[in-house]
Design a protein around this nucleic acid. Sequence first.
DNA 1: ATTATCAGTTAACTAAAGGTTACCGGTTAC
DNA 2: GTAACCGGTAACCTTTAGTTAACTGATAAT
Lengths: 117, 117
Amino acid sequence: MENEKRADATCEQELTAIRDSVEILGGKWKLRIMRHLNNHISETNTFKKIQREVDGISAKMLSKELQELETNLLVTRKVLDTRPVTVKYAITEYGLSVFPVTETLVEWGLNHRQKIK
Amino acid sequence: MENEKRADATCEQELTAIRDSVEILGGKWKLRIMRHLNNHISETNTFKKIQREVDGISAKMLSKELQELETNLLVTRKVLDTRPVTVKYAITEYGLSVFPVTETLVEWGLNHRQKIK
DNA sequence: ATTATCAGTTAACTAAAGGTTACCGGTTAC
DNA sequence: GTAACCGGTAACCTTTAGTTAACTGATAAT
């Protein structure tokens, strides 16, 4: 009975945590952007460069998604002193913490393809 | 150069895997339902019982989500010989494989709350 | 002057996810 | 026969996510 109460309480917290995670990392573009930044971590990733290389994303979506990633401390935005002005985006140390998460999603997804077909 | 090609290839597969996972487990209700079935795994979880206990879900959504979980082999559906007819839903052995995934989402989400506030 | 580049923004739209209400067929209790 | 319970379904509506296309302001090259 006590166990059940605690289980229900943590269950709620857990559902909230899952909702948070999906809200912050979900959608069509967020993880694509994060993975791209990570794969090109040694380069200077400007807005236009990211837009060219992340397949099919529009300026509007890229702008919006980068802003959200920034407010969640997953990427940094730095205006460079170039002409014309360029802006450099980079994954943060903390941003690297999403990759263990995506790794399990990748593994489950790959395994599920096998299972279903 | 060859490394880069392989990295890009697996990157695509990985993005597909992530898309699959999010498609199958994502949305407002799927993981809530899975966790509920798992938390009440020793009980007979009928449609109405689940609807009463999964907070706020409508018959339409519950029906739709359970169908999708069933086609993905994550839950089973069994019509019981009662009057009126009841239908019992249960998580499958394979369905248990989602919990390592949700676990990382939970942990990341909980940690992120700490980080942000 | 015109054109081009960069980093966006704005507005108008379409598509997808989810919610609401009413209802169906079958069965049983009153 | 009528009301209630179960497991849904159908039609309609709202909200959210994502797309498209045109535009801005600053700078620089032709």
